[in-house]
């Protein structure tokens, strides 16, 4: 009897804690629905006939999935071709961003020269410059140089606009690591290029991971520069396929939804596989940025 007496407050407390926990989980579940339900709706209606969208139900059960929507997306939507373009542009851009930002950061933090702070600040200024302000004049410049309508016209600005953040993350990280190993390597007469690749890169791994992830997301999803600088179909990147396809199949919503689903898929799959690294990388990048 006595035991219940003493136990009761903590028993109540336990119930309360349990209740709290369920409320917390419930709220999170609601938010989960808010985050993914529109996407489920999208996938759902990509599997039915276009006119079912005008029916009463807000979800339908595709008794017989209309895979031909996906067939259209793959053929006329040219998703595979755009995917390849996206992969090429993204990998080259991200590779260059990493390489250049490591080199620059090393130059800014470890090399001794008068103007290093000034130049570092100039690069960091890029944080604040909206990409859209450069669209008009870059377009003219690129066409004068005859590099518009080639992957180069995307890679250059993608690299340029991701450099400030990358450099910021790299310099921040470099400041926290001691340079004893480099010192001894340099003493041993190691050249600067070998030093970079054999010593600096491995040490910077976490920062590089962060840079890869943040710039990958930026570059992979970029739309307005791709829409402005590229003209012919063969170099277009994935985000553009939806835009293009919407014109061609303006009356077929299901097919449009199929293209949207397919374009969202690669980054979604990558995210599911790498989600721990990605969330960690983003958080690290943002807090430092």
């Amino acid at each position: 009897m006595t035991s219940t007496r003493y136990a009761s407050p903590s028993y109540n407390g336990k119930i309360k804690a349990k209740a709290f926990r369920y409320i917390q989980i419930l709220l999170c579940t609601l938010l989960t629905i808010g985050c993914v339900f529109p996407l489920i709706w999208l996938v759902d209606f990509s599997l039915v006939k276009a006119n079912e969208l005008f029916g009463k139900n807000f979800l339908v059960w595709p008794k017989k999935p209309h895979w031909e929507n996906y067939y259209l997306a793959l053929t006329d939507g040219k998703v595979p071709q755009y995917l390849v373009n996206s992969v090429i542009v993204t990998f080259v851009s991200v590779g260059l961003i990493v390489l250049l930002s490591v080199m620059m950061s090393y130059g800014f933090t470890r090399m001794k020269w008068k103007m290093s702070k000034v130049f570092l600040n100039i690069v960091l200024l890029g944080f604040m410059i909206p990409i859209h302000a450069t669209l008009l004049s870059n377009f003219i410049t690129f066409s004068r140089l005859n590099i518009q309508d080639s992957p180069i016209a995307l890679i250059i600005p993608y690299v340029a606009f991701n450099l400030p953040q990358a450099t910021f993350i790299m310099t921040g990280f470099m400041d926290t690591i001691p340079n004893a190993i480099e010192e001894s390597a340099l003493m041993d007469g190691c050249g600067i290029i070998r030093l970079l690749f054999t010593i600096v890169f491995p040490v910077l791994k976490p920062a590089i991971m962060t840079v890869i992830i943040t710039s990958f997301i930026n570059v992979w999803n970029e739309f307005i520069m791709a829409a402005t600088y590229l003209t012919s179909d063969r170099f277009r990147t994935l985000p553009f396929s939806i835009y293009n396809f919407a014109g061609m199949y303006s009356s077929n919503y299901s097919a449009q939804f199929a293209v949207m689903t397919l374009s969202a898929l690669p980054s979604l799959v990558a995210y599911v596989i790498l989600n721990k690294h990605i969330t960690k990388g983003i958080a690290a990048g943002a807090v430092k940025g």
Binding site: V87, I88, V89, V92, G95, S150, I212
Partner: peptide, 25 residues
């Protein structure tokens, strides 16, 4: 593997750009 893929993509990308450039406009 990521590094390897990256390196390959870099190479591929470069050569692709070079080839494409020649046959554009």
């Amino acid at each position: 593997s990521l590094a390897a893929v990256l390196a390959i993509a870099l190479l591929l990308g470069m050569s692709a750009c070079g080839a494409e450039k020649a046959s554009t406009s």
